[in-house]
Design a protein around this nucleic acid. Sequence first.
DNA 1: ATTCTTTGCGTTTTTGATACGCAAAGTTAG
DNA 2: CTAACTTTGCGTATCAAAAACGCAAAGAAT
Lengths: 229, 229
Amino acid sequence: MAVEYEFPRPALATDCVVFGFDGSELNVLLVKRGIEPYINVYALPGGFVRIDETVDECARRELYEETGVKDVYMEQLYTFGDINRDPRGRVVSVAYYALVRSTDYFPHGGTDASQAGWFKINELPPLAFDHKTILETAKQRIQNQIRYRPIGFELLDQKFTMTQLQTLYEAVLERKFDRRNFSSKILKTGVLDILDEKVQNVAYRAPRLMSFNRERYLQLTQEGFNFEI
Amino acid sequence: MAVEYEFPRPALATDCVVFGFDGSELNVLLVKRGIEPYINVYALPGGFVRIDETVDECARRELYEETGVKDVYMEQLYTFGDINRDPRGRVVSVAYYALVRSTDYFPHGGTDASQAGWFKINELPPLAFDHKTILETAKQRIQNQIRYRPIGFELLDQKFTMTQLQTLYEAVLERKFDRRNFSSKILKTGVLDILDEKVQNVAYRAPRLMSFNRERYLQLTQEGFNFEI
DNA sequence: ATTCTTTGCGTTTTTGATACGCAAAGTTAG
DNA sequence: CTAACTTTGCGTATCAAAAACGCAAAGAAT
């Protein structure tokens, strides 16, 4: 397996910031490292790029291998290329972020066996390498993206209430919206289908469910429509 | 100089999309390749990352070595990691974009000796590798950035007229603005100093010159101000 | 002196953002 | 069963910004 090159090369890795939403707060998926360096310290899921896979494929593979998360929304974030970001030597890392329905994967708090778990975005443990920096970059990116593109729906169940959607936006953007203005603004875009279905077993008045209409969204964007909250 | 690794590694390179403005159109700086593959085909300036430099440093160094451009505004764009993007083998490239005052460097059209030259963004020659994709990504990025951050000033002389600034915005965003609304909107932000100086030797009424006040911009952004055109 | 183009400063109109009123739905408490 | 209470759903009023446009002064060209 050993290989020889004419000139030294940095190693190339990927790391992934996985965001989840538990209904009230934004969470991040972290794995506890089992080997040195930073043994027993939490880190972003990630690993080295293989020679026969694209960088995107590497990010998906590592995420699946380390956390079981697959088939999720994923986007490249930024490449971190400082010289001393990894004590093992020169490692350049292409960072990604992913959005998942957190209830699909782990119970909140994580199973200790898997060494992976959800952490509230504002209550993070110490992190290995420069992963704190990566995470802050990812948080800024998702705050930007959610205002201009309908990525928020990746974090919710297919059917959701308007209040759930608003709570998500408030958690990501860390600010409050007026309930009535938020609702009419979102509905005005026309990308939501209002379903003939209401939430069951709920205190007080039951809200109706809605779903994101992806076809309608794509159609509208092609016509020069701009999703902006 | 030869080195051995336990596992094969992709080579890591940088490429840079250099934007310039000639007063009426947006231009891109390209270099003609002198070696195979793609000999005599135009490409973005770039090259391989050395083991003792950061990825950012590599982008600046390669840009200077191949075009003489240095000390300019530069930002990371995206990392291109497909398997077959380079016929020499596995090469992952971190792309950057830079903004320069194009008159500072080459006469428009380029000097043939240097094998580097400016091309209008909408009249590009065939490009090597996946550089067309990189360039399109860069164009989208600059169109986004110029609306929210005052990067346009990097493309103009220190002193400029309001019409020059508007022409730049129209060239980048490929749309027209109303002269009076554009002017008042920019002036209202407060980041421009109006100088006691007018353009000389000009037909018809001479416009006043202005300059970007970076200190004022930084002060305003710290106070939670948002530059948006 | 007159014509002509650009500049500079304004107003009007339209659109969108924000604030908030209120009644109906539907559960909980007495 | 009735009253109280919370959430929902739909509406309007107010305010701020965007877009459209009017007009005269500057100043070179004729």
